[in-house]
Structure formats: C-alpha cells, structure tokens
Design a protein around this nucleic acid. Structure first.
Lengths: 344, 344
DNA sequence: CAAAAGACCGGAAACGGTTCCGGAACTGTT
DNA sequence: AACAGTTCCGGAACCGTTTCCGGTCTTTTG
C-alpha cells in the first residue's frame, strides 16, 4: 500500500506537461495565452491544468519573465481615514487585471534604513505611493533607477516627470467658500493643513480666490493652522471661536478638523449651524455620522485609486505620455452643518 | 565615451561577489547571516552590499529557498470598519520580522473561480484570513494542502485543528449587560448580528447569561436581528422603539448598529441616554465621534493582529502547539450613551 | 512537383538566488 | 612529522518558469 504524503505536494509545470503528454514549453504557452499552439492541444492542456488545480509558481514566473503580477501600495503606517476609499478603488482595478497588492506601510519607527526600492524593487512590477513623505528629489532618483510608480495625493510639489493623481483642491475649496458666501457669511475663518503641503496651499488659494471674488479682504487673524486630526482641529477652532469678533463660519482643511471644530463649538454652547457654519473636506464616513452631519467637499477616492492603477498599467506597458498628471474633480456635498449666519 | 544606460541596471549577487572578490555563495551567506564566513570577509562583503545599495531579488530567493518573506492577508473586499485596527497591528508585527504583506480582497464580484490557494500558494509563506466566508471544510482542505494560515475572527465555528484568534465575545456581552443592569435597566433589548455567526451566538449567550443572573426572563420580542451596518441597525432599532412597551436600553451587536439605533431614537425624539441607553461593540473610531459618544465593548484589534502574526510565525517555523485557539479579552468602555433608566 | 511559407512543437538556456558538498589552509595533538 | 579536526570558502546543482531557436510536418505557391 502506497504511503500518502502528509501534505500534498504542489505540482509543477513539468508534471502537468507529462500528464498532458506535451513539453513544458507548450504548457507555458497555454498558461500565458501565447500563440503557436493548436486549438486541440490548447484544450487538452487546459483541461489537465484545470483538473489538477494547477497554478504557476509566482516566484518562478517573476524570476523568469521579469514581471511578477505584484503591485506595491505604499501607505503611511497610520492610515489616513480616507485611505480605505482609495485602496478600495485600487484593489478593484488591480484584481480585474489579475494583479496582487503588496501593502507596504511606511514611516513606522521600526523602519530600517531600507528604502522603497529595496523593499519593492525586484518584488513588484511597480507601485502606488500614497501621501509620500519622500521629497521630489528622492522620487526622481527612484524613477531614474527604473522603477515604475504613480504618486497619489502628493504632499509636496512634484517634478514634472513624476506621474501623479490628485483631487482638485483649489476648485473644491472655491465651491465650499461660494456656498458659505452665498448663504450670507462675511466673516469666514479658515483652518488650514500643515504649511507647505500641496493640498494646504491649493485649498488656501481657493479660499482666498472666493473671498476676493466676493470683494472681501482676507483677515489673517481668521486663519489657523492644524494637523489634520480631530484634536488639533478642536484646538485651532477654539482659537477662532475665542476671538473678540468670532467668525460665523469655518472652512476646515479636512473632515477631521471640521469634527474638532464641531466639538469646540459644542463645548462653548455655540450651536451648529445656527450660530456657526462648518465645512469640511474629503467626505470620509465620519462626516455622515457626526452631529450635525457635515457639509463637505467630496474627493472621488475610489476613482483616484482606479485612475492611479490605470496610469500605472500604461506605464508598465512602456507607453509614453503627453501628460503624467491627473487631477480629478471634487464636489460639494451639502448636509446639516451649514446655514445662513445669525441676525442675517 | 561610454554610453550610459537609460535606466540603471539593478545589480545581482554575481556582481556583488565580483566587486568583493568572493564567491556568490559567500555573499549569500552574508546576506542571510549564515555561518562559515570569517568576520573579516563578512565586513568586507557587507560594506560592498551597503555601498551599492544591493538587495536580493525576492522572486529568486523565493524560488530557491522556498520562503518568500511574504504573508497574505485576506480580507473582505468591503472592509469592515474595524479591519484597519487589525491590519495596523499585523502590519507592525510583520514588518518587525521583515515580512511583506500581500493584501488579497475576497468576495469581489470580479472574483474568478480561483481559490485562496491558487492566489497565494507559491507566492506567500502563509496567510492571515480575516472574517473568512469559507466553510470550515474548505479551510480544512486548505490546511491539508500544506498551506499555513491563521484565521482572525471566524464567522463560522471552526474545526479544532484550524488556528484562530478571536475576541472574548461572551464575556464582553456579559460586561455590557452587567453595566446596564447595574444602572437599573430591566427591559433591555438586543439587536443581534446575522444568525449563525460565532460572534452573534456568543454575544447572545452573554446577553442571556447576564439577564439570567439578574433573575430576568428573556423576552423574545426584545430581540431583533440585523446586518452589522448603520442602516439595518436603524431599521431594527425602530422595531424595538415602536414596541408598545419599549425597552429602556439596547445592547447592539456592534457599533454601526448602535449608531443606527441612536439615529432611530433621535428621529423619534427619544433622548439618549436619558430615555434610552445604548451599548455597542468593537469600539471603532466612529464610536467616539458620534453624539452621544458610545458606550461600547472594546475589541483589542491591534493586539489581535499582532497575536495572529506571532501564531503564524511559529506555525511557519514548524512548531507544534498544544492550543491553536487564542481568545483575547474585551473590556467595556463607558462613555455618554448609557445612564439609569427614566423614572428609575 | 520542387520550393517556400506557415503551423506547431520541443530542447535548452536563461533568470538570481540558496545550499550541499568537497577541498584548502590552518590549528592542535600525539 | 603525521594526523585529525576546524574554519573558511568556492563550485555547482537546483528551484519553476518563460522564451529563443531550430526542427518537423503540412500547406501553399510558381
């Protein structure tokens, strides 16, 4: 009686070839849908493959063919809340194309001196880099080293050659401000994100442009800066609300900061939106469950993910591009945190 | 003048060996910290490696050594909200051990007939399977095929041999109920999760046990079932609140359902917690920003991730175990959604 | 009908590592 | 001085694919 091996051995292309009575070259051709195989043989081999549940060893394929079917996704270790939206879009687009995702958290304290290249080069075919902390120079070096990638939502201004996908910050901010101004607000405070970020500067530009269009001079005391989290947002909002002549509306850099602002208002007994209107940015899930539900500028997160993937795919195919930068439209979602100003 | 190649060619172990004047076997030994290398040689080779920024091609290593340094993480395509907590813990633990994560969304409609094995076998060394939709039988087959994995938070009861990590559902539910009973509630409704889930049945058990301990007979009309999302939670809560004699408190299967319950109460003008207490489960971020902030049972998500990783690692090392099931303690976090019952 | 073209297939050389095995040089023992 | 035992190192087999190249057999062409 034959002994049954404890763990079924995974079979390889050689065994499939023997089973089908063909060469391994032919099996490989069937596997990859290449030509030079008769219809008859193709079906025979396909059947054997199916019946035995065979799949090619991906390491071997990667070694031999140079492409691994893997795409890296680099993301800050502490996920920004809106990351899951991007990931969902990217994941869907990638799995449609039969790619797998290698998720690589960056910025952890355990992080060795190994760079992106070291971790992903030779493992993945390319990468999506979300909110990179790397400078434009570092990314250029990466590009020059032959690694293909697309940057999503760059923090810093990027050199022309670096492919990137982002949202229309300026126009989003402009829409948000127009909404507030249309409601009749004249003293609108702003809580910006960290200085130097592309998103911060672009949204600030939208804020100023809308004010200017309404003939309102920007008041520097109405601008605060905060890290894009709830607590810093609350602190910044407190500054604005404690002003001798406080604003009737606040445009926040993102939803987290806006939620902090709601908390600050509540702590002072200031009613939102009756006495204070608040607008956020991003439209993360939190925006819908907070009270009052947040009026905010929606970023098309899933679409950003999908777009980045399709850009990357074309890059991998070696296509050259006229434009490497894609900016996706944003749109205002009006909920319950905005209303006309008091006595007005 | 020598032509500079457009994209710097990645160097391989052969070139490093030549540069250092040793054999590739020696370089490999240094790379992997193996013995049989003099301290002198080791330093020399290390220096060359460092100076040239060399890293081993992971496909080649995977092929040759059988281990790839990759761990699959299988997760439902639509992330449950608490997934990011688990992932954060797992990611940290994995990167400490120099493993990379292959994120594989399951259950997408584009999903081919390819199974877990097909996608991950031969690519990763093992996997973390979160909230698997597979039956215990399918997972057993996977186990028998020689694939190593750990299940996190199984939906269905699992066979003994399948390694798993979960939270203490029953005791968490019991704590939540004790809290409500201590506050003086006697009519406590329950919104359970989908029938058949381990978590549903375990938490229901805790609910019943606590009632029994307080000498209260369970009232079937006070039990509703709902999918673990906000909208179904609201619908289920409406049923309970429209009862002729409505409950003074609701124990919800998870935070999403609890948030739905808050919304249902608000829509009816029922004040939380003055007229209705609500307790959730999970302690996701939403619980802290909703109004009122949710009293809930915290699952140690990051720790579950870390624990699963360390279990998997020991599995990969071929260790045998006395116990393959780990249950992590949960604990009640009291916030603002619970209070003594009215007229009480 | 001979020659050219085309369809189909197999052998074998990569790809870049890891590891077994054997050999050289050195050390210590009798 | 001969020998055994260590330490250190290099050659080469091997992992499982893809793909180039060339060969056979059939079909088309002049």
């Amino acid at each position: 009686m034959k002994h049954v091996s404890e763990t079924a051995q995974r079979l390889n292309i050689r065994q499939i070839a023997d089973l089908a009575g063909v060469s391994i070259a032919t099996v490989s051709r069937v596997l990859n849908g290449r030509g030079d195989v008769s219809e008859e043989t193709r079906e025979l081999v396909s059947r054997v493959i199916r019946e035995n549940g065979y799949t090619a060893n991906r390491s071997a394929r990667g070694l031999s063919a140079g492409r691994t079917g893997l795409v890296g996704v680099l993301v800050p270790l502490v996920f920004p809340a809106y990351f899951s939206g991007i990931l969902a879009g990217a994941a869907e687009a990638l799995s449609e194309r039969d790619f797998q995702i290698v998720l690589s958290p960056t910025g952890g304290e355990h992080e060795r001196e190994v760079s992106i290249v070291d971790r992903l080069h030779g493992l993945t075919d390319g990468a999506l880099i979300i909110l990179p902390e790397e400078s434009s120079e570092e990314l250029e070096r990466l590009l020059d080293s032959g690694f293909r990638f697309v940057v999503l939502d760059p923090l810093m201004p990027l050199e022309e050659r670096i492919p990137s996908v982002s949202a229309a910050h300026t126009s989003g901010a402009d829409q948000a401000m127009k909404h507030l101004l249309d409601l009749g607000h004249r003293r609108v405070g702003q809580i910006t994100g960290p200085r130097g970020w592309v998103a911060t500067e672009d949204r600030r530009r939208g804020y100023r442009a809308a004010l200017a269009a309404a003939g309102i001079l920007p008041d520097p005391t109405l601008e605060q800066e905060a890290e894009p989290e709830i607590d810093p947002g609350r602190a910044a909002a407190e500054q604005l609300l404690d002003l001798p002549e406080r604003p009737t509306a606040i445009f926040a850099f993102n939803d987290n900061i806006a939620i902090g602002a709601i908390q600050a208002a509540r702590a002072r007994g200031i009613r939102v939106p009756e006495e204070l209107s608040i607008v956020g940015f991003d439209d993360i899930e939190h925006a819908t469950i907070v009270t009052p539900a947040l009026t905010t500028v929606r970023q098309p997160l899933a679409e950003m993910g999908r777009t980045a993937v399709s850009l990357l795919m074309r890059l991998l195919e070696g296509q050259r591009f006229e434009t490497l930068h894609v900016e996706l439209a944003t749109r205002l979602v009006v909920r319950d945190s905005t209303a006309p100003p008091p006595h007005g």
